[in-house]
Design a protein around this nucleic acid. Structure first.
Length: 217
DNA sequence: AAACTGATCTTCT
DNA sequence: GAAGATCAGTTTG
């Protein structure tokens, strides 16, 4: 995937609107990506790879087009798409998405009701897709997932489809979320989203303000 | 609506 | 031994 090899900062806005499908045990969940963050390896204080390669982040240093999944806060998994060329550590964190297929399976895994929050947030997104232990390093297959047909077993796999070739006009950027220290400052506005997506937190925050005409106490 | 807190454990210093 | 690319529930204003 040419686009991914050019690095996370290049690829991140192009992944908005793309779909990621995960099939396992005959269950298929597809998410349309709505919010991402770029992490650019050893020059990026916010990246897991800032202090070099370790056992945990080894996948980031491999070739583009693989999943980098990591465990954090003692209970959550998050998923990245590895970018760049081998030897560099570049990845795009998937921060939010809209579940477009397999809502029932996603709801079951999340233990939550369907809605904008089903895959909003990196850990929620990973959980909705069923990504976790054992998925780090998984290769991404190109194109849409095979369609589910009666009597034909669905092979396990992860598919990435619909990566843009040009950034969509109006794409918004901002500081990364949850990144402390220098990596979180405005020096790295490497978070990308499209306006008007209910699964993206800035939209929720804006929409949550007092509605026009509402009287405040 | 914002702020705070508990949960829970791997990873690296 | 401390911090962490988080989330959900509760408390406070």
């Amino acid at each position: 995937m040419q686009t991914l090899e050019r690095g996370a900062l290049h690829a991140a806005p192009l992944l908005l609107g793309a779909t990621l499908s995960v099939a396992r045990s005959g269950q298929l969940v597809t998410v349309r990506i709505t919010e991402v963050e770029a992490y650019e390896g050893e020059r990026d204080p916010g990246s897991h790879a800032y202090r070099g390669q370790t056992a945990r982040n080894a996948t980031m240093f491999g070739p583009a087009g693989h999943l980098y999944c990591y465990f954090t806060y003692g209970m959550h998994w998050c998923a990245n798409i590895v970018c760049g060329t081998p030897g560099t550590s570049s990845a795009v964190l998937l921060r939010a998405g809209e579940v477009t297929a397999g809502v029932d399976a996603a709801v079951g895994r999340r233990g939550a009701l369907p809605g904008p929050k089903l895959a909003s947030g990196p850990a929620r997104l990973a959980q909705a897709l069923g990504l976790g232990a054992g998925d780090d390093g998984t290769v991404l297959l190109s194109g849409p997932a095979p369609s589910v047909t009666e009597g034909v077993p669905l092979p396990d796999g992860v598919w990435l489809s619909g990566v843009r070739s040009r950034r969509r006009p109006g794409t918004l950027t901002g500081p990364r979320t949850g990144v402390s220290g220098a990596g979180g400052s405005g020096e790295f506005p490497w978070r990308f989203w499209h306006p008007g997506e209910p699964s993206v937190s800035p939209y929720r925050a804006a929409a949550a303000r007092r509605r026009p005409g509402t009287v405040q106490s």
